[in-house]
Design a protein around this nucleic acid. Structure first.
Lengths: 242, 242
DNA sequence: TATAAAATCGACGTTTTATCGGAAAATATT
DNA sequence: AATATTTTCCGATAAAACGTCGATTTTATA
């Protein structure tokens, strides 16, 4: 091997390391950004008020999950939170406003939890698998929240430009990112529209979660989520090898 | 070939014809039942009243699609229909009641239209493909209706036991039926949970429709729906050949 | 502990939902 | 055709839920 060839080889290696590093940092940046997004604009000054805010959110989650958003009354939520109706209005200007804020903290919690667990996974394939599995499992663990998000808010939230909408957009962006990396890694067909692939993945898992929320079937959502996630990814891999 | 063998062969043939015929009639029965399900319990006696009912439904569809169900007011719908608020209550006992009735007629129309188109398809594979493609295409053709159904009602309707819920259950049952037939036909993996397969199919297509309703992307929903449906079925077929 | 800011609440006005009794229109009966 | 009966429609109004405001209490801070 002459010098020129050696240098060229070395350059290629360096370049590929550079790319890998870029990708890695892009991934970290994405998760960083997403985990930090959900933050209420108005910060309460007193401890008491912070407690009140939390009580409102907890109460709202319970009442919304029990009665459904449209049937829930502000007065009930306030009573459940142990405050007066007018105090609640000090925190949220309408029921809609409140409904859009309730799922946020759990969503942030999910992202954080995923971020921690994903650290040990290096390939996009592993990361995507974990993401889908954790989505289902998180819904099982927080059924009230999931009921609210998946059955009442998810599709319709997009109509208006809320903080929650951005968070759900983030949820999609993560998958899109991993699908594109999957193409780079060679296990996702490059000639498929990545948005279509994302729709397929999210749709499949969400439909599974929705079915569970409604009928508590399949009995074991964690197992079913894993099965579905593995199946979806295997299907994508099958598309490549031909 | 001796007589006994001949008889045996003949019996087998007869038996298999019998099965095929049973399956065919099961399919027809299913579609028949489904197409005829959506019917209001209370039938109006006067023509004028039937017109009024139609005007209410049309007005409700427009207003709901424009403002969203929760923001829509009964008074607006009544005005749009050219009747008084109290007359509207003569027809529907609440806004919720109305919201659940609005999508029904289109859904029945879809089933009917599918029934007509599916007649020429003999295999479950072709029938399923048509079903998924037509779902997407029907949403494109009736965007207001689709917006109401997919973004506002579909997930949450299951909470209560309504006529609409049964219709949406029917929508699922058709797919489940075809998936099971697909196993019999040999192009769907028999070791997969058919409910999981159904979730995957519905989820993928619905997610595509939802994305289109929200962002009008992909631009051409008919084409994207066809692509998605073909891809999903190809994926199922890929699972078998290994 | 005095003070200003923040948070809470009860009273009350507004909007939306829902009911009711009778008028008007359509249909049935003679 | 005239009248009785049923069906449909609507104005008035009650009931319920939403949302506001000023007075009062609590908290943070100096």
């Amino acid at each position: 091997m002459d010098l020129e060839a050696f240098v060229a080889t070395k350059e290629v290696v360096v370049e590929s390391e550079q790319i890998a590093s870029d990708t890695a940092s892009a991934w970290d940046n994405l998760l960083e950004e997403i985990a930090h997004r959900p933050k209420r604009a108005t910060e309460r000054k007193q401890d008491r008020a912070k407690r009140t805010e939390q009580q409102i959110l907890n109460a709202a989650l319970r009442v919304f999950a029990r009665d459904g958003i449209s049937r829930s009354r502000i007065a009930d939520i306030a009573a459940e939170a142990g405050i007066s109706t007018s105090t609640l209005y000090e925190y949220y200007k309408s029921k809609e406003d409140l409904a859009y804020d309730v799922p946020l903290s759990h969503l942030a919690d999910f992202f954080e939890s995923y971020h921690a667990n994903a650290a040990s996974r290096t390939s996009a394939r592993e990361r995507l698998l974990l993401y889908l599995v954790m989505s289902a499992d998180y819904a099982r663990e927080h059924a009230e929240w999931a009921r609210l998000l998946y059955l009442e808010i998810w599709p319709s939230v997009f109509v208006s430009d809320t903080e929650l909408r951005h968070s759900i957009d983030d949820f999609t962006r993560v998958i899109l990112f991993l699908v594109k990396e999957g193409v780079a890694e060679g296990w996702v067909a490059p000639d498929r529209n990545p948005y279509e692939t994302v729709a397929l993945l999210i749709g499949g898992v969400n439909q599974l979660i929705i079915t569970w929320l409604l009928y508590r079937k399949p009995k074991n959502l964690t197992r079913a989520g894993t099965e579905m996630a593995e199946r979806l990814i295997a299907m994508l891999e099958n598309e490549v090898r031909r």
